[in-house]
């Protein structure tokens, strides 16, 4: 990428989606993976939980007008487990989510998020509960998710959030879109490859 985008903080209102172990099949049903681009993914997050078979909306935070325009998603434990489909974070991002704060995230999901410039930050279970309650009672609450300082705040309140140092560094330095960084070292890559015996078919 030619353009470097540093992601240090995300501000805006939040939407809570409660529950542990929310898998990526729930975040985006597999049938939408048949599309050849991510362009329309923003229409599909949690589709089968938001709409019934006839397409009629069901009660779901992402359908609730009070959370309209939220940019921070609040979740519980092991969010994004299961399938590696990047369509899941793409769907959330294209729906308008710019940061996810939760108790914990599944490994591949968190990795996919950072590569899209979508921060996933963790906080204690009690802080997540407090944030969710705050938002449910007062959905207009504006949050600042500060990736650099590892603090989430609203009004006078502050909680500490965490994310792997490598993710924080990638996001805040603008090197989350890693291709350029990796490609700059192709000579070293070739050197490493040349030392691996299978690369030459174990030739003597």
């Amino acid at each position: 990428m030619s353009e470097i985008v540093k992601i240090t903080r995300v501000t805006g209102t939040a939407v809570p989606i409660r529950g542990n172990d929310i898998d990526t099949d729930r975040i985006i049903p597999a049938r939408y993976l048949k599309e050849v681009t991510f362009a329309r993914m923003g229409q599909y997050p949690f589709f089968d939980e938001r709409f019934d078979a006839a397409g009629k909306p069901k009660a779901h935070p992402l359908n609730d007008p009070k959370y309209l325009g939220a940019s921070v998603l609040l979740v519980n434990r092991n969010f994004g487990c299961g399938s590696s489909r990047e369509h899941a974070p793409q769907a959330l991002y294209r729906f308008g989510i710019q940061a996810i704060v939760g108790e914990s995230f599944a490994a591949i999901f968190a990795g996919n998020c950072v590569m899209m410039g979508l921060p996933t930050a963790t906080a204690s279970a009690s802080d997540i509960e407090m944030l969710m309650n705050t938002v449910e009672q007062n959905p207009q609450t504006r949050f600042i998710v500060d990736i650099d300082k590892k603090i989430a705040s609203f009004g006078e309140q502050q909680i500490s959030i965490d994310l792997p140092e490598t993710y924080r560094s990638a996001l805040t330095s603008g090197s989350w879109d890693s291709t350029t960084m990796l490609r700059a070292r192709l000579d070293q890559v070739k050197k490493t490859a040349s030392k691996l015996p299978y690369m030459t078919g174990f030739a003597g």
């Binding site: 991510f38 990047e86 369509h87 990795g111 996919n112 590569m115 899209m116 490598t166 990796l182 890559v189």
Partner: peptide
């Protein structure tokens, strides 16, 4: 994920 597939295609490496 797909962005990582891109990285492997472009560089045969991952971060």
């Amino acid at each position: 994920g797909t962005s990582q597939v891109r990285d492997v295609l472009a560089t045969q490496t991952l971060a």
